[in-house]
Simulated assay, not measured.
Amino acid sequence: MMRAIRIRDVGGPDVLEPTDIDPPKPGDNDVLVEVSAAGVNYIDTYQRSGLYPVATPFVPGIEGAGTVRAVGSGVDGLAAGDRVVWKNALGSYAEHVVVPAHEAIPIPENVSDELAAALLLQGMTAHYLAVSTYPVQPGDWVIVHAAAGGVGLLLTQIAKLRGGHVLATVSTAEKAELATAAGADAIASYEDFAARATELTGGAGVACVYDGVGQATFQDSLEALRIRGTLALFGAASGPVPPVDPQTLNAKGSLFLTRPTLAHYTRDDDELRWRAHDLLRWAGDGTLDVRIGGRYPLAEARRAHEDLEGRKTTGKLLLLPA
């Protein structure tokens, strides 16, 4: 038997139930991994609540890092004892998880399991947003919402690596300090960021708004954009955005609106490994500062979700099975 978190019926954080279940077995082209650390992400809360449907009962969590303990047939390049990290293996809130071999990324020696688990999913999200969805150009002003969160801190750093200027939105003075330390050039509240963007750009507006907040920020995010600016709506932490009349984008300056998702930016192994290797290299050599904002025993997954949804956290949250 192994310890895991199980969801019998969707709902609030109280449905996260610590329990003992049979450990999984790797199938063809899979590896069985002993989990050192599992990442806690907003997608976990969406699946738990039913916003993103998953057949119940299920073990939540899609991201983590650990040590390979067994390999299925057809697996090349991985062996028992290898340390790996992954960003898409449902069932990661557990002591063991089956990971598709193509999703298992070897961890460099100079990167710890916890650091890798804290980096991959949110780091890849930041990478595709700043490098591909709207590639930040030198001199661009961009807005990063929730800049003290896990994605926000990494996204701010990658935007700065590309020569951009970042206007960061935060809700507290402590979070403002974290965003500034990550390289943000200016700070705004969620109430005044559009006006601040206008001021900083001499009335032109910003090149892109990276918006993982959703409903609460969406309208002002549109207002903050320059002509032909891009709103990259990659999450809905405050709730889903209502339907949008495309004519609105015309009236506000031929704007671009996209609702990207990581799966479409890691469509093949080459793209997946390109993004992962960039991030692990930057983390290993200190180019990226990865903030772990909270470590919780596996049995306290409920508290981790409550803290995340209550906006009490900064950086990345990890569940530790051991």
Rank of each mutant, 00 (worst) to 15 (best):
residue 264 H to P: 14
residue 53 P to W: 02
residue 288 L to V: 08
residue 138 P to W: 00
residue 90 L to Q: 08
residue 35 V to K: 03
residue 25 K to G: 14
residue 310 G to I: 00
residue 115 L to F: 11
residue 139 G to C: 05
residue 28 D to H: 15
residue 147 A to C: 13
residue 278 D to R: 02
residue 119 L to G: 06
residue 219 Q to C: 02
residue 273 R to L: 06
residue 302 R to N: 01
residue 306 E to K: 14
residue 1 M to H: 14
residue 64 G to L: 10
residue 220 D to Q: 10
residue 194 A to N: 12
residue 181 A to F: 08
residue 255 L to N: 09
residue 85 V to R: 05
residue 230 T to H: 13
residue 240 P to Q: 03
residue 154 L to N: 09
residue 150 G to D: 03
residue 217 T to Y: 03
residue 143 I to T: 07
residue 20 D to G: 15
residue 270 D to K: 09
residue 250 N to H: 15
residue 80 A to E: 11
residue 48 R to Y: 12
residue 87 K to W: 07
residue 185 D to I: 15
residue 83 R to G: 10
residue 157 Q to V: 05
residue 183 G to W: 09
residue 205 G to Y: 07
residue 294 G to F: 04
residue 155 L to K: 04
residue 258 T to Y: 13
residue 148 A to Q: 08
residue 42 Y to T: 07
residue 42 Y to G: 07
residue 260 P to R: 10
residue 58 F to S: 06
residue 105 I to K: 07
residue 272 L to V: 06
residue 48 R to H: 04
residue 278 D to S: 09
residue 207 A to L: 13
residue 76 D to W: 00
residue 35 V to R: 00
residue 30 D to V: 05
residue 174 E to I: 04
residue 246 P to A: 10
residue 126 A to I: 10
residue 213 V to Q: 14
residue 166 V to K: 08
residue 106 P to Y: 01
residue 201 T to R: 06
residue 63 E to G: 09
residue 127 H to S: 11
residue 78 L to D: 05
residue 77 G to D: 04
residue 156 T to C: 12
residue 231 L to V: 07
residue 95 E to H: 06
residue 248 T to R: 14
residue 114 E to A: 09
residue 292 I to P: 14
residue 93 Y to C: 04
residue 172 T to Q: 05
residue 60 P to R: 00
residue 197 A to D: 07
residue 70 A to F: 03
residue 102 H to V: 08
residue 279 L to F: 01
residue 190 Y to H: 15
residue 228 R to G: 08
residue 77 G to S: 05
residue 85 V to K: 02
residue 19 T to Q: 13
residue 24 P to L: 04
residue 214 G to F: 07
residue 117 A to W: 04
residue 40 V to R: 10
residue 76 D to G: 10
residue 38 A to E: 00
residue 72 G to L: 07
residue 6 R to C: 15
residue 188 A to L: 12
residue 55 A to Y: 00
residue 124 M to A: 11
residue 36 S to W: 04
residue 11 G to T: 03
residue 140 D to Y: 07
residue 266 T to D: 03
residue 195 A to N: 14
residue 248 T to S: 15
residue 218 F to S: 12
residue 157 Q to A: 08
residue 265 Y to N: 13
residue 120 L to G: 02
residue 61 G to V: 01
residue 29 N to W: 01
residue 308 L to M: 15
residue 211 D to L: 13
residue 285 D to N: 08
residue 130 A to Y: 06
residue 169 T to D: 03
residue 236 A to T: 06
residue 86 W to Q: 00
residue 84 V to I: 11
residue 146 A to M: 06
residue 49 S to I: 00
residue 26 P to W: 03
residue 138 P to M: 04
residue 317 L to K: 03
residue 103 E to F: 10
residue 161 L to M: 08
residue 170 V to Q: 06
residue 106 P to I: 04
residue 175 K to M: 13
residue 33 V to T: 12
residue 133 T to N: 15
residue 253 G to L: 05
residue 266 T to A: 14
residue 152 G to T: 01
residue 193 F to T: 11
residue 146 A to P: 12
